[in-house]
Design a binder for these strands. Structure first.
Lengths: 124, 124
DNA sequence: ATCCTTGCAAATTGTTTGCATTTAC
DNA sequence: GTAAATGCAAACAATTTGCAAGGAT
């Protein structure tokens, strides 16, 4: 039944404004201080995920959340500055073949590319 | 200089026998009890990774390690029984195009597919 | 009125670290 | 002999949980 509280509205609005996945703590630090407890953020994000409003993805040891959108994207993640560059998803075609072989019912997938962005290549 | 100790030999041998990625704790529970401390496992896995002997990959909130092999693989992970099914990697071709656009220097990538294996589809 | 959500603090989980001792080279 | 590896316990970071109080439906 997902009740819409002051906090959840705040959180959802903030997520909507972001094009990139955000961790719970990133959101926590950006919201007006005292407006929402960190554990409430975790609980709400989880509720949103169950409700299909947001997608969760794990990068390294952190969970990131992003408003669910029609187009499925992936990210190039810079190992130096942690910048995330969005790229289009092109894996469905070959995935279909591979998963059929194993009679696997796909629910979702994550593709993350690690490396160095243009700026950090020269430095690192 | 990566010294080969009794523990590291044990660990490396165990990893070699496994075709699937293993978490530190999975290894810990499988090795003869008392043969190796959990923190030593973490430290050794990290050393192996730096030395290029193993690959580390994060699935969910867990780190998994696997002996590095020539062929790069990905996994279909069952959301119910956590079985991991190996599939071939076919992402390089389109990745090349996408990363060139952004002048991104790729170091590695992870693709993980979540869903339900044949056995668990009927149940879940 | 009921059941869901919140805040807070405490618990859990996965992983890392400091330090004194042991071991490979 | 020396620098690196180990075990243990304690520290950490991210996330989860229990519970009493507050709020949406």
């Amino acid at each position: 039944m997902l009740k819409m509280t002051k906090q959840r509205t705040l959180l959802l609005d903030y997520l909507k404004k972001s094009t990139k996945p955000l961790s719970a703590e990133m959101v926590y630090l950006k919201l007006p201080q005292g407006s929402m407890n960190l554990s409430t953020i975790y609980r709400s994000l989880e509720a949103f995920e169950v409700a299909g409003l947001v997608d969760k993805t794990n990068l390294g040891n952190l969970a990131y959340y992003k408003i669910r959108s029609h187009e499925h994207k992936h990210y190039l993640v810079c190992k130096n500055c942690h910048k995330m560059i969005e790229i289009d998803c092109h894996v469905d075609s070959f995935l279909e073949v591979e998963t059929k072989k194993h009679h696997f019912k796909v629910e979702s997938h994550d593709l993350t590319v690690y490396g160095y962005c243009e700026k950090c290549q020269t430095l690192a």
